[in-house]
Amino acid sequence: MCTTCGCPEEGHDHHHDHDGHLPGTRITIETDILAKNNRYAAGNRALFKANGIFALNLVSSPGSGKTTILERTLCDLSGNLRCAVIEGDQQTDNDARRIAATGVPVKQINTGAGCHLDAHMVGHALEELPTREMDILFIENVGNLVCPASFDLGEAHKVVVLSVTEGEDKPLKYPQMFHAADVMLLNKIDLLPYLDFDVEKCLEMARRVSPGIRIFQLSAKSGQGMAEWYEWLRGKG
């Protein structure tokens, strides 16, 4: 049996015409498939607005340094700003435990087989966080440069993290994600002396895919460049 549409033939093409059917009734829908996610995202956005929360959705490939950037940011900022974190990973609460060690409220979401956070999951996580006492919410998405691009969580900005060990052409290889982001953190610049990474070329490619993208070059390890990022956060974008 054909596995694509369940019809008994094999190897035919799937552009069926409908002549073989008894005439059915056609119903026009014209609705965005992600409409439900977008409704939940709008709900989250309303909650952020009502409570004055600046929400950021951090996206990247696995291991670019999202959690390390957050650990350092939280240690340096949480004296003045009330921060909270939602951690998305397929499995484990390792990242949530790293964040909890900084003393900041954190909620882990495990997506299991899922490759991205969606707005509904984030809405439930928010129920368990002190949204009335929160200035900035960082949402660390599942490490994946593809799928999280399509799912609005209600954030003010998608912040894409790219580390210099990944190669400078990532913006062109994963254009949908870089197009969806309007802030980019170029991380691990402490490693530049050991690599052939061309920073200018990388920035140029990021701007081609996302004109007007705001870029911070930093190292979560050495602390270099973090001050500009903090300044932007304090000014809330």
Partner: peptide
């Protein structure tokens, strides 16, 4: 150097045929 997308990002259910 840049164009504003008019189409190409849609993911929609257009219509259905029911019994």
């Amino acid at each position: 150097p840049a164009l504003l997308l008019r189409t190409g990002e849609e993911m929609r259910v257009k219509d259905l045929e029911v019994e």
